[in-house]
Amino acid sequence: MAEILLNILGVVFGWVAIEYCLRHQTAESLNDASLIPFADDPEVARRVEAATGKTINAVAPQELRKGWGNLEV
């Protein structure tokens, strides 16, 4: 009986902790956060935009400066 009570308390504590962490988030901010993995690759961002219809603010990757690429240590 004690194990069941502890399991229920653990689930309730986890739910309350997640709700507390996400209390200031809006649907828009959570939607933007779900698209972050695609923001650094413009080609993938275009494909995801075409597939989902959601706008992704893609950032082009920085170009390597002369002498800064392929360093051997």
Rank of each mutant, 00 (worst) to 15 (best):
I36K: 13
I56C: 06
I56N: 01
P37L: 04
V44Q: 15
A39T: 14
R46T: 12
L6R: 12
L9F: 05
D41V: 09
C21Q: 15
I18N: 02
V44I: 11
L64D: 10
Q62D: 12
M1Y: 10
S29F: 01
L71C: 12
D40A: 07
H24L: 05
P61D: 00
L5V: 10
F38S: 03
A2Q: 09
L9Y: 04
F38E: 01
T55Q: 12
A39F: 04
L9M: 07
A27P: 07
N7C: 08
W15Y: 06
L64A: 05
D32R: 05
L35T: 03
V59G: 00
H24N: 07
N31G: 03
L5P: 03
N7I: 07
I18L: 08
K54N: 03
V59C: 01
I36R: 15
L71W: 05
E19T: 02
A17H: 03
A39G: 00
A45P: 09
I8H: 07
F38T: 06
V73G: 03
S29W: 00
I18H: 01
E28F: 01
R23D: 03
D32L: 06
G14V: 02
Y20E: 14
N31T: 12
K54I: 00
Q62A: 07
T52E: 06
N31S: 15
A60H: 12
L64V: 03
G14F: 00
I36G: 05
I18R: 05
G53T: 00
N57S: 08
R46A: 15
P61F: 08
V48Y: 05
R47T: 00
E19V: 09
V44T: 13
L6G: 10
A17E: 05
L71D: 05
D40G: 06
V12L: 10
R46P: 01
V44L: 11
E43S: 05
Q25R: 13
L35W: 04
I18W: 02
E3S: 13
W68K: 13
F13G: 09
D41T: 02
V48G: 07
V44E: 12
V73W: 10
N57F: 06
K54Q: 15
S29Y: 00
T52P: 01
V48W: 13
P61S: 09
V16D: 01
T55L: 12
C21P: 01
W68N: 14
E28G: 09
D40V: 06
D32N: 13
L35Y: 05
N57E: 15
T55A: 13
E19H: 09
R47P: 00
L35I: 00
R47S: 02
L6F: 03
N31Y: 06
L64P: 10
I56E: 01
T55E: 12
D40M: 11
P37F: 08
G69H: 00
K54T: 02
I4V: 10
R65Q: 14
V44R: 12
E28W: 00
R65I: 05
L30I: 08
I4S: 15
V12G: 07
L35E: 02
L5Y: 14
Q25C: 13
T52V: 03
D40L: 05
A17N: 05
L22P: 09
V59L: 12
P61M: 02
P42A: 06
I56L: 09
L64I: 02
W68L: 11
P61T: 11
V11W: 11
R65N: 11
A45F: 09
V48T: 13
E28I: 07
E63L: 04
N70K: 09
H24E: 10
A33Q: 11
G69Q: 08
H24P: 10
G69C: 07
I18A: 13
